[in-house]
Simulated scan of single mutants.
Amino acid sequence: MDRIATFTMNPTIDAAYETDRVFHTHKMRTQGEHYDPGGGGINISRVIARLGGTARAYYASGGATGVALDGLLDLHQMVRHRIPIAGSTRISASLYDRESGKEYRVVPAGPSFTEEECERCLAEIAQAGCDYFVASGSLAPGVPEDFYARALAACRQRGIRFVLDTSGAALKATLEAGGVFLVKPSLGELQALVSKPLEGLREIADAARAFVRSGQTHYMAVTMGHEGALLAHEDEVVCLPTIAVKAMSAVGAGDSFLAAMVFSLANGRDVTEAFRYGIAAGAAAVLTPGTDLCRREDVERLYREVAPLSEARVIG
């Protein structure tokens, strides 16, 4: 049995380019192009592999681009489980403008799913054998907003800890079903969830802890960009600052954070130490350009710089 499995409903081939200057109409010659398999769950599996673990990647894909995605996953030596669909897997692109230092990202919606394809995905999830199941990323067009809630129910029936990273209606519907093990919204996603702005750590902490105390999730980790992150338990909320690093790209920081947390939990660390390791991985991802993810040597180095729990702000 796998310790960790991930699921990506709407994966992507991530193409990354650099150019000297962005301008309209004329061709922009690029350098340093590279192509990676992407999407929330796939990114998490890639990070866990870099950290020395294994996470079986379940994903839906189709068309000629789906074949290309399979090849990219094999190049990364991923343990993969493809769920075929009729539509073509999407291609996302990021373009780094060297002159301005800005990054431009183009992200298609992805293929539309039929009801039969949704049921096929749920049937495959129901057969997954693991301790932790990580559902990460957006739902594709045509997928009902309760899809992750149904996946949660299938996992809970077999005692599998369900970890969630999504947004919008899918996030709300899954939390309302109750019993998520760990959920990782960004601050913006949490504010959308509660339908109001949250000012200051106390308001953010109270909002996160309300979801824990209601039984919707056992833990909620909220990433807040340069403001750090917080982890809500039933009785307290632990807040830690981020690590100051030179930012190359914010792409993949959230996936790296969650992957490191789950990897740590699966290897016996308690949830607060796993949270610290996640902060190190999120900072390490910012060091890498384009669609690249964190590197293990950076994670281990930065982990030593994360504030110890004795110095954390605790909101009781």
Rank of each mutant, 00 (worst) to 15 (best):
R80L: 08
F211H: 15
I91A: 12
T242Q: 03
T272S: 15
I44Q: 01
F275Y: 07
L302P: 05
A283E: 01
D270A: 04
A123D: 13
V194I: 13
D235C: 10
A60H: 04
F23N: 14
S88Y: 05
Y58F: 14
G66E: 00
F133Y: 09
G316V: 09
Y58W: 08
E33T: 14
H34M: 13
A140D: 03
G66Y: 00
N43W: 02
R50N: 12
R80G: 08
I243T: 01
R105E: 09
G66H: 00
G63Q: 00
R301K: 13
G129P: 05
T272F: 03
H34Q: 10
M78F: 06
A283N: 02
A177H: 10
L231R: 02
P37H: 09
Y277M: 11
E18C: 12
I91N: 06
E119D: 12
I83T: 03
E116L: 07
H218L: 11
V222N: 02
A192I: 04
P144E: 08
S112E: 13
F133G: 01
A177C: 08
G178K: 02
R50P: 03
I85K: 06
G228I: 02
G53A: 02
A154D: 11
P37S: 13
H76C: 11
T65C: 10
A64H: 07
P308D: 03
G142D: 05
I4P: 01
A109S: 10
C130W: 11
E234H: 13
S214Q: 13
S112D: 12
T19I: 15
K102I: 09
A55C: 07
G53H: 01
R213G: 06
V245A: 04
A260K: 00
V134H: 00
H26N: 15
D165A: 00
L201W: 11
A250V: 15
V67Q: 12
